[in-house]
């Protein structure tokens, strides 16, 4: 159990995929202009990561060594296609706004990286912990980035994801004076680079403070 929590927490903190390892940056920058996108993308990545980690770790002894990477790629691509089809049917608006970044999870360095570096060498239980930890680390990073971008860029936050799924009401919050003149650059593409650059610097600065 101790090792489970160790594998789990490392993904969120010391090897956070976005801020520390700088992996999986493309979706983190591209779709993080709204909180809805961030939540949807995180759910998709966690599902694929968990599914592929479980299957690959369970099959690790029977996969022929020279066909390792092609096998991993087929397994990951299968899970990505399932996610894409399910999103298309049940959350069409989200499917539309994630665009090609949903199928592009298949080339996300985080997922193949975990398959190769962790799941193909470790038992199922720790691979699940690893997938959940790295997945949540990715999700947290995405949520922080999107909160900042959506709030600064539109002057408010709104979530309509649950409305599409369960017919629940949508949550939204706007800052009255600010939302009339928001800093639109944050929802545009240059703003993504700015927010992630500053957050990375902040993470490092905290790390350096701790070391001193």
């Amino acid at each position: 159990m101790a090792s489970f929590s160790k594998e789990f927490s490392k993904g969120i903190t010391i090897s956070n995929p976005i801020f520390i390892l700088a992996l999986g940056l493309c979706p983190a920058l591209a779709i993080s202009y709204s909180l809805d996108n961030a939540l949807g993308m995180s759910a998709a990545v966690i599902f694929v990561l968990l599914g592929s980690n479980i299957i690959i770790s369970a099959a690790r002894r029977i996969v022929p060594n020279i066909m390792r990477i092609p096998t991993f790629i087929v397994i990951i691509a299968t899970f990505v296609t399932i996610v894409t089809l399910v999103f298309q049917a049940y959350v069409p608006n989200l499917y539309q706004s994630l665009g090609i970044f949903l199928p592009l999870i298949v080339v996300n360095c985080i997922i193949l990286g975990r398959a190769e570096a962790f799941a193909s060498k470790n038992p199922v239980i720790s691979s699940i912990a690893d997938a959940l930890g790295i997945g949540l680390g990715f999700a947290l990073a995405l949520i922080v980035i999107s909160l900042l971008r959506e709030f600064l860029g539109t002057g408010g936050i709104s979530i309509s994801l649950f409305e599409q799924l369960f017919n629940a009401g949508s949550l939204s919050f706007t800052l009255p004076a600010f939302s009339e003149h928001p800093l639109a650059i944050f929802v545009l593409s240059p703003g993504a680079f700015l927010v992630i650059g500053l957050l990375m610097a902040l993470f490092r600065w905290i790390g350096q403070k701790k070391n001193d």
Binding site: V74, A77, I82, L85, Q88, Y90
Partner: peptide, 20 residues
């Protein structure tokens, strides 16, 4: 082995596609 993996994958996907 890889052919088998691809076959399983195709079966799963055709099934999911029919549902969705």
């Amino acid at each position: 082995f890889v052919t088998l993996v691809v076959l399983i994958s195709v079966t799963l996907l055709v099934f999911t596609e029919t549902l969705t």
